[in-house]
């Protein structure tokens, strides 16, 4: 118990870094994903083609590779990021691709009649999106987006490889120094707590959106 108390501060500092990667990725990837999702059903073939390529690339290669590519690879052609920026760059691009696919499906599921009703009421395309389409899309995509959000909590530990002091790294340092399993177990427990809290939050959100069907 005493031991746990001594390593807790370093683990909590690690949690903060993990949360930072998590929150900033969500903030960046969600709007980007919505835009890309809209773009995937654009009437312009080039836009669709480019975005499909982007999604294919991001989903078809390991996030770990993307992370290493950005932080260790790009400097070879004189593009350097600091560690956190590199992590956010890779994570946001990667997660936006998953979100884009989800939102594309979400937009596709809205019946054309919704657009037509809005059109004869003379609502502008932007008003239609904001008041009618997006709220329905968001309701529909909460479960799949939620799955990705949970994945992101765990994926954030990949930043370990580019030397960011996240939760996993904090635990690993303690375990190596003190030659004990306890920090690993504690790290696991903290991840479980984070995913549990997020799951509960997502359930609430889903319930909130149940006010209509």
């Amino acid at each position: 118990m005493q031991y746990i108390e001594t390593i807790l501060p370093s683990l909590l500092a690690g949690v903060l870094v993990t949360l930072k990667v998590f929150v900033l990725t969500i903030i960046g990837a969600l709007p980007l994903g919505i835009l890309a999702g809209l773009g995937l059903k654009s009437e312009f073939k080039i836009i669709r083609w480019l975005l499909n390529g982007y999604v294919w690339l991001m989903r078809g290669t390991p996030l770990l590779l993307q992370l290493i590519f950005v932080f260790y690879g790009l400097p070879l052609i004189n593009i350097t990021f600091d560690r956190l920026d590199a992590a956010l760059f890779a994570f946001i691009l990667n997660y936006a691709a998953y979100f884009a696919e989800i939102f594309r499906g979400g937009f596709q599921a809205i019946p054309i009649g919704q657009y037509e009703a809005a059109k004869v009421l003379r609502l502008t395309p932007w008003q239609t999106q904001r008041k009618i389409i997006l709220p329905q899309v968001i309701k529909n995509v909460i479960p799949p987006v939620g799955n990705e959000v949970i994945n992101l909590i765990k994926d954030s530990s990949l930043v370990y490889v580019i030397g960011i002091g996240d939760l996993l790294r904090a635990g690993n340092i303690d375990a190596a120094r003190d030659v004990t399993l306890v920090p690993y177990i504690l790290v696991g427990v903290i991840y479980l707590l984070l995913t549990a809290v997020t799951t509960i939050g997502l359930r609430r959100l889903e319930k909130y959106y149940n006010y209509y069907r």
Binding site: G113, A117, A118, R122, I132, P135
Partner: peptide, 19 residues
């Protein structure tokens, strides 16, 4: 056109379910 010269009542109404 501002006012909708032709108002439409669609076959399956197309009400906005979120409103």
């Amino acid at each position: 056109l501002k006012n909708n010269v032709i108002g439409v009542v669609f076959q399956d109404y197309n009400l906005f379910p979120n409103l």
